[in-house]
Design a protein around this nucleic acid. Structure first.
Lengths: 157, 157
DNA sequence: AGCGTAAGTTCCAAAATAGAACCCTGTCAA
DNA sequence: TTGACAGGGTTCTATTTTGGAACTTACGCT
């Protein structure tokens, strides 16, 4: 299977990966959340090659995760900002950070901690059920066929 | 920057990516959550080349995300299961699914839906603050230097 | 005229992946 | 007792992707 075929599969994980399924893209988004906006800043902070950076940014813009805005006309200068779709990626990043903190930080502890301005506390992100607000455990979840798959079934005779 | 250097950086996103930063690894985990355990089953379900599958499974085992168990001695047969570290990846996967469902599912709707056995409802995963249980928004979060970075600072002269 | 800056492109070498074939150990059925 | 099959890999070559470094373009400054 090639990667182009992935975004057509009826699986939200695969579709998401078709967009953000490489390491550089995820690191670009990480830095975007840390307020990086310009080409050269991304390049210097990440150590990514300019070539790859250009192609990844173009892809993110094409797919609606980031937008490219002119912040100066002459000479033309651009900045890249997260769209709403991009900002919504934050929950994935938080989950990724939490996993890394829990399993890979070692003795030293988490490199970054986060404060929730609303309540003023340091916190961990918690993944809970939207209905009962209890934390979720794999073994208590049953996947069922959703509308996106039912359509497919009907179609293929 | 090469990928081997990544796991040494003081960032939990980068460290996590050093383990699961390629698309196949994430898809392997996805199928592991769907109860796939054997080499040939992973291979058939994913369409990954046997070579890559072998190397990815070996890496996951080496790093403690999955374990390789003998389920039959003669001839020797193995199965791959998620460890606790692997099971804990589920919150990342849920976030990824939610993002894909929200932004990439289109008209047809989500391919899979999930029922929380505890409360009996279909749900969406929600990322909330461990302290006040309110849903988190990027703009209400302040990152601060954690112990893992303070150590580094002290060390470098 | 020459230097600096932001945002890319271009080019070649090195690394990773795809696809297919092959290997090993043992079981089973003819 | 030979041949087919199963599970779990390994090996090989061709193709794609990356990495690294230099070059380009369009302007503004001194």
């Amino acid at each position: 299977m090639k990667w182009r075929e992935l975004d057509g599969t009826p699986c939200s994980v695969a579709r998401s990966l078709a967009i953000v399924g490489d390491r550089w893209t995820i690191l670009i988004l990480r830095n975007a959340f840390l307020r990086t906006r310009r080409f050269d800043d991304f390049q210097a902070q990440l150590g990514i090659t300019r070539h790859l950076l250009a192609s990844r940014l173009a892809k993110l813009v094409k797919l609606g995760v980031m937008s490219k805005l002119t912040y100066q006309e002459r000479p033309p200068r651009y900045e890249y900002r997260l769209t709403e779709m991009g900002r919504d990626w934050y929950s994935v990043q938080l989950a990724l950070v939490a996993w890394g903190d829990r399993w890979l930080a070692g003795e030293a502890g988490a490199p970054l901690e986060f404060v929730h301005q609303k309540c003023g506390h340091k916190f961990q992100p918690l993944t809970v059920c939207s209905e009962c607000r209890e934390p979720l455990d794999v073994r208590e979840i049953t996947p069922i066929i959703g509308p996106g798959l039912r359509v497919l079934k009907r179609v293929k005779r």
